[in-house]
Design a protein around this nucleic acid. Sequence first.
DNA 1: CGGACGGGTTACGAAACTGTTACGGGGCGG
DNA 2: CCGCCCCGTAACAGTTTCGTAACCCGTCCG
Lengths: 226, 226
Amino acid sequence: MQTILVVDDDKDIVDLVRYNLRKEGFTVLTARNGVDALELASQRPDLIILDVMMPEMNGWEVVKKLKAGARTSTIPVVFLTAKSSEVDEVLGLELGAEDYLVKPISIPKLLARVRAVFRKRTSAGTVRENIAVGAVEILPEQHLVMIGGREVFFPRKEFEVLLYLAEREGKAVSRETLLDAIWGSDAHVVDRTVDVHIAKIRDKLGAHSDYVETIKGVGYRLRPPA
Amino acid sequence: MQTILVVDDDKDIVDLVRYNLRKEGFTVLTARNGVDALELASQRPDLIILDVMMPEMNGWEVVKKLKAGARTSTIPVVFLTAKSSEVDEVLGLELGAEDYLVKPISIPKLLARVRAVFRKRTSAGTVRENIAVGAVEILPEQHLVMIGGREVFFPRKEFEVLLYLAEREGKAVSRETLLDAIWGSDAHVVDRTVDVHIAKIRDKLGAHSDYVETIKGVGYRLRPPA
DNA sequence: CGGACGGGTTACGAAACTGTTACGGGGCGG
DNA sequence: CCGCCCCGTAACAGTTTCGTAACCCGTCCG
């Protein structure tokens, strides 16, 4: 079953949310401050419900750190906020906030949002299964790459590029497509940047660097050699 | 130039979007409600930017009707939404929404999304199916050519020429037509250039070089020998 | 028989593309 | 505050691809 991390300094709210989510069958982790939240986030819950206003480390900071961590950057976050004026910030800042809820919390609304997140996750194909291309294995959920059985660390961008290519094994992928998919359609990035990442990926692939083929004038293609 | 239909009940937004899209060279149609939108959609714009919240007929209904109409079902739609909670619905319901934008609108983002839609449409949009002509197999998505089961590399231009001929197997294609289709109508290329590429293609086809027939005074034709 | 046409081939310089390395900025952790 | 890592950009070098021109051949005439 899916795990949800609930973070709020108000014990009443934590209890209320936990009770209701458990009743729905979710596994619930809780934290009363940002530090503990980050600690628990490393367990990779499927969703984080996060209070904006907290002593010491507020919600923004927590999210920033989550997004920075390779293992936690893809976890969806739903904000809890007391003031509706904060809503604009949630939407304005592009922190990858999945959604928000305004206090006082309406339980039906909460559950609806939570279900919506999971629906989106599964329908949008965000369920990232492990992929193997020849001797290269990619484990998206753990942000891990195994090359010939050995574990190799890939920084975020390189990882995403590799994953994208792997999901389309054998297909030619243009730089433009990669930029759209990974950097976002509104990115301000030169396409030669892709080359550099490809170079680094090849470097890490070591003996298997020939998995990444260059198609001049077209793009790249990932596949095991014949 | 491409035509975009903008639908929103807020005049300010319509004006803002129209102004910016026009500046980018698009032809812009506008509607203030769902009914007018459907009316204009019959003109088959290349893209529809659609507000979710509108009086009388909301965005969902408009899209449903668009998808129902044979002439309008393939037009990509980008949603405009004020609340992030609606985003889930956009993605959750599989209405074929191409993308979405959250208000307040960022113009650079809007333009980036629009451009992305057109890029996707022209490049990956069409599902390029594999083609076989005799012993020659062309796999467009992988940018691969198999000749008698053996993989042979074709540089971009040669690949495109071969593909173009293969898509018209048995039909005579003039140099002029090829130049138009592959080099672009605004290219400044001598038509004898085509001959050179044909020669290279024949060379790579090896034993099957006779697939490419010359029709004197007309052009070329690709087909397996009788 | 000579010449005009159309086309096949080859050679070569220019342009286009990519691989790689180096550098600067930013963020995070110590 | 310092140092390390990730990332985007620029610059340089090495290839590949492309477009033309040139030359050659066969055919079809008068």
